[in-house]
């Protein structure tokens, strides 16, 4: 089944990109889940969509070749900083920042899309992911993002863990909680922008959370949960990409369904363990 993925360049880049996001999405997802920030991932993916729509519009209407992936990334990172600003404005209602940013993202996307008189197939690819969309350039950019994200997480692992477990205690002990949190949100924005090519806007947060939900049932401790999440993420991406390609289904759908199956198995195993 695999040969096609090695024979055709575009498929090989898709496959390699998939392997990268199978690591970085659950890696950050672990922190996102334990900090109960899953909705931020959703908000940011919709802002990324606005950025992508902007890039496609600029290309079609004005002939500006920004590259939708770059404009998507720029919007995502800006959106992440805005969310943090809004959270400090609405101190007592921090969750308000999420619907505000999410709806702005959707609103802007609709405007950009209609200005460009629609761009159906491209947009469909961005919503649900695509196996044929990754160019060599895309791959190199996503590789850069992945290396950067992994380096930062390794370097700041103890701070990120301490902050996630108990933010107040982290602050008291003298950590720069606000700055570390901002760094973390920007990393999340980058990972989302990098993942959208393959899993699509609507399903990117699933790849960040479902493998974590599964490993949470089985792991002992935080580090183990993180490693298990990455393993589940990789399994989902590999099986999802291959089956999506051969069944002609956007990979976003197949990847998420594989993660759901893994999740169900994890819940089942836990049940069995309790009974034994």
């Amino acid at each position: 089944m695999l040969p096609d993925f090695f024979q055709y360049d575009f498929l090989r880049y898709t496959f390699l990109t998939g392997l990268l996001i199978g690591v970085i999405a659950p890696l950050l997802g672990t922190f996102i889940v334990v900090r109960r920030l899953s909705l931020i991932a959703d908000a940011l993916s919709h802002v990324t969509l606005a950025g992508i729509a902007f890039g496609l519009m600029a290309e079609k209407k004005f002939g500006l070749m920004i590259g939708p992936l770059y404009s998507g990334m720029a919007f995502s990172v800006l959106g992440s900083i805005l969310i943090e600003k809004l959270r400090s404005v609405y101190k007592a209602f921090q969750e308000l920042a999420i619907p505000i940013i999410l709806s702005s993202g959707v609103g802007l996307s609709v405007i950009f899309i209609s200005v460009a008189d629609g761009f159906n197939t491209d947009l469909f690819n961005y919503l649900f992911g695509s196996v044929s969309a990754v160019s060599q350039n895309d791959f190199l950019m996503i590789l850069t993002i992945a290396i950067f994200v992994i380096l930062v997480v390794v370097l700041f692992y103890k701070e990120l863990f301490t902050l996630s477990f108990d933010e107040e205690h982290a602050t008291i002990s003298g950590l720069h909680s606000k700055q570390i949190h901002l760094l973390f949100i920007v990393l999340t924005a980058l990972v989302i922008a990098a993942s959208i090519r393959i899993v699509g806007v609507l399903l990117v947060s699933a790849l960040m959370t479902l493998p974590v939900a599964a490993s949470m049932r089985l792991a002992k401790g935080f580090k183990q949960m993180m490693l298990l999440s990455i393993l589940f993420g990789e399994l989902s991406v590999i099986i999802g990409l291959i089956s999506g390609y051969y069944l002609s289904i956007p990979p976003g759908g197949t990847i998420v369904m594989v993660s759901i199956i893994i999740l169900l198995i994890a819940i089942g195993i836990k049940r069995l363990k309790i009974r034994v």
């Binding site: 334990v34 103890k158 701070e159 863990f161 301490t162 477990f165 108990d166 107040e168 205690h169 982290a170 008291i172 002990s173 003298g174 950590l175 949470m216 792991a219 002992k220 401790g221 935080f222 580090k223 949960m225």
Partner: peptide, 29 residues
């Protein structure tokens, strides 16, 4: 510091005793 909230923390948080105690050293290191 041992907080009033310590016994109301997120019970589901998947961390070992070792990991939790290690977080007390993060800033020192």
């Amino acid at each position: 510091f041992v907080s009033q909230k310590a016994n109301a923390f997120n019970k589901g948080f998947p961390a070992t005793v070792y990991e939790v105690v290690s977080s007390g050293l993060t800033a020192t290191i």
